[in-house]
Each structure stands twice: as C-alpha cells, then as structure tokens.
C-alpha cells in the first residue's frame, strides 16, 4: 500500500511539474510578441547565448568532423567506396550530429548560464523588485532570453555542421588521400534540400526546448545557493534527455 501511495504521490508531483512547465511556456508565448517589440534586448541575448558559445561550438564541430572523417574513411574503405566520405559526413552532420551535439553543448554552456543568471536574480530579489516596479519579469527577463536562445540555436547548429564538414574534409582529403573532387561532388549530388530542412527543424525544436527549460528552471529555482545549483544541474539533465527524446520523435516523423 505504501509503495502504491508513494507511486501515486510521485505521479501527482510529476503531473504538477508538467502542468507548471506548460503554464510557464504558455505565458512565455503570450508575452513574446511584446518582447519582440524590443529587439535590442533579444539581440543582446542572441549575443550572450550564441556569440559567446561560438568557440566551444566551433572547436567541437571541428573535432566531431575529424572523427567522422577517420571513422567514415575506415568504414567506407572496407566497401571500397571512400569517395562517398563527403556524403556520409555531410548527411551525418546536417541531419543528426550537428543539431544534437550543438543542442547538448548549448544546454551545457548557454542553458546553465541562463538558469544561474535568472536564479541569482531571483535570490537577490531582483525579480521581486521588477514585480514591485510593475514590470513583468517573464516579459522583461525570461522572454528575451528564451527568444534569444531559439534564434541562436539553429545558427550555432549550422556553424557546427559547416565546421564539421571542413573537419571531415581535412582528415579525409588532406590526410587520408580521398579525392577532393569526388568528396565535394558526391556530397553536392547526394545531399538534398530535405536533409538540410530536417536539420533546421530539429535545431529549432531543440532551441525551443533547451531555452524554455533553462529559463523555467532559473525562474523557479529556490532562492538559495543550493537551490540555484540544483536548478542548473536540472537544466543540463532535463535538456539533454529532452533533446534526445525529441530527436527520436522528429527523426521518426521526418524520415
């Protein structure tokens, strides 16, 4: 009986959490048009979430592309089709690795920064002060950060894929001796618009999920050092699981 009641209690708690998150996202959407009327605030956040994440995204993209070049070359060599390396690398990066790894890195770099920033604003009464100045903190603080993340994420994913393809070319063509013409021409003929669209759709969806989770956790963090720390951890864990789950669902739909 205790186990059952514990399970029921836990289920109710999870439902409540989902309800709160849904309401919060609803409010974010409701205030977003007014937040869009002040583009300067959003541009600032695109800079904070996007431009400041560029180094980690570009470095990771380069190494992932290089690994893809090595592994892809080894695999394709067994089938005698190393000239398809460009296609394999491009499809892997554009459709899957680019959006997913960028989103995971985004959750770790920009998501945690958003959560801790908003959480600390709450802990130091800055959000309450805004409420008292008749300024809605969700409109003034959360919505610009959410929208900034949504805009930054597809741009970062595109840069990741681009650098990744360059990394694969660096290993495949420069180091392993794959023919440069074949590498690029096969890629150009095999990669279709829908492959790129799949990656863009995924990265936008991940941007929505990661940014919404980050601002939600920050806004609802307990106003203590421990509370903000826990909220930051939850941002990374929840965002990562959400990205992988959404990736599976979108892949199933878009294939």
């Amino acid at each position: 009986m205790t186990v059952l009641s514990d399970l029921a209690e836990n289920g109710r708690g999870q439902l409540e959490k989902w309800g709160r998150f849904t309401l919060f996202v609803g409010r974010l959407f409701a205030v977003s048009p007014r937040a869009l009327a002040r583009p300067r605030l959003i541009v600032e956040q695109v800079h904070n979430s996007g431009a400041l994440s560029l180094v980690i995204i570009m470095l990771s993209g380069l190494f992932v592309g290089m690994v893809l070049g090595l592994q892809g070359y080894d695999l394709l060599r067994r089938f005698g089709s190393t000239e398809s390396l460009g296609t394999a690398a491009a499809l892997g990066l554009l459709r899957e690795l680019g959006p997913v790894i960028t989103a995971l890195l985004f959750a770790g770099r920009a998501g945690t920064a958003l959560t801790s920033e908003i959480g600390l604003m709450s802990a130091t009464d800055q959000l309450s002060a805004m409420e008292m100045m008749a300024v809605d903190p969700i409109r003034r603080v959360c919505a610009p950060r959410f929208l900034g993340g949504v805009i930054a994420m597809p741009l970062l994913a595109a840069i990741f894929s681009m650098i990744g393809i360059f990394g694969a070319q660096l290993v495949g063509v420069t180091m392993m001796g794959v023919d440069s013409g074949q590498f690029w021409s096969q890629m150009r003929s095999a990669v279709e618009l829908r492959d790129i669209v799949e990656g863009v759709v995924k990265s936008i969806a991940f941007g929505f999920a990661c940014s919404a989770i980050a601002v939600y956790e920050g806004y609802h963090a307990l106003p203590t050092a421990e509370g903000v720390g826990r909220a930051t951890t939850r941002t990374v864990v929840t965002s990562s699981v959400a990205v992988l789950a959404i990736d599976y669902m979108l892949t199933a739909v878009l294939l």
């Binding site: 309450s128 300024v135 003034r140």
Partner: peptide, 30 residues
C-alpha cells in the same frame, strides 16, 4: 504597484545595469 515604491533589504538593484540605468529602469519600462 505603479503608485507604490518598495525598497528591499539589500537594495535589489539590477546587477547588469549601472546606477543611472537602474534609476532610469522604471521610466524606460513605463
């Protein structure tokens, strides 16, 4: 609340704005 002002125990100034912008904040918002 536009007819009220509140002073928090620690000041609760917005840490990403300087003193001038903190004071200007409600005016710019409203």
């Amino acid at each position: 609340r536009r007819r009220m002002g509140m002073l928090f125990q620690n000041g609760a100034l917005l840490t990403d704005l300087d003193v001038y912008e903190n004071v200007a904040f409600p005016v710019r918002e409203h």
